[in-house]
């Protein structure tokens, strides 16, 4: 565990907690894409299946449970909590998530390190995480309305991705056999999506229109 990895995990954790806080206390999920949240729930559910088969550390198991619990809670709130559900931008959040899930599944079946059930699903979760933010970005561009908490959520997620890349660079130079092409490329694609968003975000910000 290096400082970049820990900072990345904490940033990731903070992003999820910011979102839960917004939904739980303000009872609003305006501007939040249910599609993206459902994709993250699928990502965690397929990646952490090894929670039953391999133990790394108490920290790892604890964090996995937190990410599973929080992502499914957010989906539950948005789907089934009446007050929260009423604030959901259903008409705008129309990105077809199957267009992301199916290609990722096919890609995981074709490109993986080992052809086992757990390994293919784990690889699938990497590919899916890379693109899971897309419905959220589309929703953001459509509604052109980004409140502080939604903005912070996306900033924290982007920060988490950036820190993970620093973590991989650090591990590559300090751990003799640390080479994981699939993880790196998927992670890089994901980070580039965030970079694109930040670029757009700053252009608007500098353009004087600010953030509503």
């Amino acid at each position: 565990m290096n400082i970049f990895r820990l900072a990345g995990d904490m940033t990731h954790l903070a992003s999820v907690l910011v979102l839960l806080l917004k939904i739980h206390t303000i009872k609003s999920c305006a501007g939040v894409s249910l599609r993206t949240q459902e994709l993250y729930a699928i990502v965690f559910a397929t990646r952490y299946l090894d929670i039953f088969t391999s133990f790394v550390s108490v920290y790892n198991t604890f964090m996995k449970l937190v990410f599973l619990g929080s992502s499914f809670s957010i989906v539950w709130y948005m789907r089934y909590h009446k007050a929260v559900h009423r604030t959901y931008d259903r008409e705008q959040d129309t990105f077809r998530h199957w267009f992301l899930v199916l290609p990722c599944l096919v890609l995981a079946l074709l490109i993986h390190e080992k052809f086992t059930f757990l390994e293919v699903l784990w690889t699938f979760s990497l590919y899916l995480e890379a693109v899971a933010i897309l419905p959220q970005l589309v929703l953001l561009q459509r509604t052109r309305n980004i409140d502080n908490l939604t903005g912070q959520y996306i900033f924290l997620l982007g920060g988490y991705r950036g820190l993970y890349i620093l973590n991989w660079i650090y591990r590559y130079f300090t751990e003799p056999h640390f080479v994981h092409w699939i993880t790196w490329i998927a992670g890089l694609v994901q980070t580039l999506l965030y970079a694109d968003f930040f670029y757009y975000y700053f252009l608007r910000f500098i353009g004087g229109r600010g953030v509503e």
Binding site: R5, M63, F67, H177, T183
Partner: peptide, 10 residues
């Protein structure tokens, strides 16, 4: 061993 390395991240 490499397995454990890749799976120790979240």
């Amino acid at each position: 061993e490499q397995d454990l390395e890749s799976k120790d991240e979240l």
